[in-house]
Design a protein around this nucleic acid. Structure first.
Lengths: 126, 126
DNA sequence: ATAATTGCAAACAATTTGCATTCAG
DNA sequence: CTGAATGCAAATTGTTTGCAATTAT
């Protein structure tokens, strides 16, 4: 594969934004280079993911969240205000062990978010 | 709110199917009553969810999975073969405690699936 | 030349909206 | 009669596909 300018732009955008939806990556890239098509964003994100350079997380509804592979964390999404809190991956270590033993399931802690209520919304709900 | 025939059909479908996407609920309902529109399925699912009667889970990509509130479990989705394993909610109890203490986050264990590799796919991958 | 890459338009899936019609109290 | 509920068509969002034009080797 060739590291084309478009691909570099996508990767740079992702490094700058730390994490973003394809749409957001597209907007960021197009600020610098408006000619880049969103199709290319999608294709590049898929390619970079196949190469293990980036990964994506589903936060629930809507578009997935891409990030460079290094920035891995567990996403805690508040389903009331949609705020996303990031937790270090190791909070899931025990659960990973349990799931392996009880279900033979190898948990990938950061691919999907966890849903719940953030501290603020718990107060607001009382 | 009135328990209209359409709404009853949606709820019945969900009870029979145990869990299903809006699309699947729609097909099930339309087998008995073809005139019911998918818009009504969506509206009814939203309504039932507001009432706390049903809930939905995101398995990752694609349509969410609805179920009646009683049948709660954690979904373990294999991101290789897309198989869904169900685990009892209590496997997340420790994690729930940790997240509450460390992040003030009240985990809703069943709203989002967990992603990883199922036992079969782990073998296949080696 | 030839294979990979891109842009563009169109297709697609899942969902939502606007609005006119129907229905129950 | 009046508001709630429904159906239908159209709009919206996120994503994918087909294909022709472009680019690097």
């Amino acid at each position: 594969m060739r590291m084309t300018p478009q691909r570099q732009l996508v990767l740079d955008a992702l490094l700058q934004l730390e994490q973003a939806t394809p749409e957001q990556v597209c907007q960021h890239v197009q600020r610098a280079t408006p000619s880049v098509n969103i199709t290319t964003i999608y294709r590049t994100l898929e390619l970079l993911e196949d190469l293990g350079i980036v990964r994506h997380t589903h936060l629930g509804h809507g578009a997935p969240n891409y990030s460079v592979h290094e920035h891995q964390h567990v996403h805690l999404v508040c389903h009331r205000c949609d705020k996303v809190v990031e937790a270090p991956r190791d909070v899931m270590d025990d659960l990973r062990g349990t799931l392996r033993v009880r279900f033979g399931f190898a948990l990938d802690a950061s691919h999907l978010a966890l849903s719940g209520l953030c501290a603020d919304c718990q107060e607001a709900t009382e």
